[in-house]
Design a binder for these strands. Structure first.
Length: 155
DNA sequence: GCCAACGTTGGC
DNA sequence: GCCAACGTTGGC
């Protein structure tokens, strides 16, 4: 049985359109510099389903992706040129991980955060919790199915 | 642009 | 180990 997750990204940085346009519609999910988020990524398995969420600009769940490679060292942490460079992480002792995800689909209509807050079945979802900042979040199968169903309806 | 809610850092 | 200061995230 696959696991379910939600990944946040600022679309100005990397959007679902960027994912759809990437080679093989696949990308490595680099730049996570939070231990809780990293530890959750380490629990991801190939085949797990991912809700793709845009934050900051029109926050919304905008589509689906799938885990295609499990956690491995995030090499961008070693590169001083990178925005998320972390001198404490080295190739010998990597501190941060990333996974690979592949595009599944882009919803015809995004599901805006304010709308999701009105959905009773989603009460208690981490994304909707006040002050929620975690960029990698576990999602229940029920929550995932509700989101997918709403996306079909909205579309 | 504001600010609440965090997570991290560093002095002690 | 405590906790104040600081930096960041991200909704609004």
């Amino acid at each position: 049985m696959p696991g379910y997750w939600l990944l946040k990204t600022e679309p100005g940085c990397f959007s679902i359109d960027d994912l759809a346009a990437a080679p093989s519609q696949t990308t490595f999910w680099d730049g996570v510099r939070n231990y809780q988020a990293r530890n959750l990524m380490r629990e991801m398995r190939v085949g797990d389903k991912v809700l793709f969420h845009h934050s900051v600009i029109d926050p919304a769940v905008v589509g689906l992706a799938e885990v295609v490679r499990e956690a491995y060292p995030d090499h961008t942490a070693w590169d001083p040129e990178e925005k998320h460079y972390d001198p404490a992480s080295t190739p010998d002792k990597p501190r941060w991980d990333m996974v690979d995800i592949r595009f599944t689909e882009k919803f015809l209509q995004p599901l805006p955060l304010p709308f999701l807050r009105t959905v009773k079945e989603l009460a208690g979802m981490e994304l909707l919790r006040k002050g929620s900042r975690l960029s990698v979040q576990p999602v229940t199968e029920a929550q995932f199915q509700v989101i997918v169903r709403l996306a079909k309806q909205e579309g």
